[in-house]
């Protein structure tokens, strides 16, 4: 038996999955602030030493991007949509297209040697995409972190507080922002965003 227990946690498509916001309803509004949940993506936490060459080469060959070593950055595979984000000097978040997490974990495990860990956390968090002119205002109302473009260029990713919860804020391109929020706080975050976005005529799709 392997020293680490890995198993495919996703059932077949006959089982109905429910995202953390499954019980909330969409809000119809304008285009100044549009929030959309992207549920059921694969989320893996990868931990290991940044100087472990096998770690870098495995990420490159399996995910198709360089392992980001620069703090507070993430890299996106434009073709697959997969991304790898620096979380701390020995911790990365991989966000993968739905259903790929088991295969990616297995492939990474085959290629990485030395001390590392990979943990599937996809059930525990969800991703929101934000766009529109008022994203800056919404985030300024919600986070202590400075989201001005001079401090938050495309490619940056920061774990910080969000209202009284926590969130990861990412900027994949000029138009969009991403929030990664925890499942148990998702309802609170939804209500917070809906409330804060009311003055901007928010649209929220779940």
């Amino acid at each position: 038996m392997s020293k680490v227990a890995v198993f495919n946690q996703c059932p077949g498509s006959e089982v109905m999955a429910e995202s953390p916001l499954a019980h909330q309803s969409s809000v119809k509004g304008g285009r100044a602030l549009i929030v959309t949940e992207h549920a059921f993506l694969g989320h893996l936490i990868l931990r290991g030493q940044a100087d472990n060459e096998s770690l870098k080469s495995a990420v490159l060959s399996v995910v198709g991007v360089e392992l980001p070593l620069q703090p507070l950055t993430f890299v996106l595979n434009e073709t697959t949509g997969a991304s790898v984000q620096w979380l701390s000097p020995d911790e990365w978040l991989l966000i993968l297209p739905a259903g790929q997490e088991y295969e990616v974990e297995q492939n990474l495990r085959q290629q990485i040697s030395g001390h590392f860990s990979i943990v599937n956390v996809g059930g525990g968090q969800t991703l929101l995409r934000l766009k529109g002119d008022k994203v800056f205002d919404l985030l300024s109302k919600s986070c202590v972190y400075d989201v001005h473009e001079r401090n938050f260029p495309v490619g940056k990713a920061v774990a910080t507080t969000f209202a009284k919860a926590t969130a990861i804020i990412r900027r994949p391109n000029e138009q969009e922002w991403e929030l990664v929020i925890r499942r148990s706080f998702a309802d609170y975050c939804y209500r917070w965003i809906t409330d804060a976005g009311r003055e901007f005529d928010l649209t929220f799709t779940v």
Partner: peptide, 12 residues
Amino acid sequence: PYCGEHREEAEF
């Protein structure tokens, strides 16, 4: 010193 920038006390 790990993130390489100043952050607000609320994060610590």
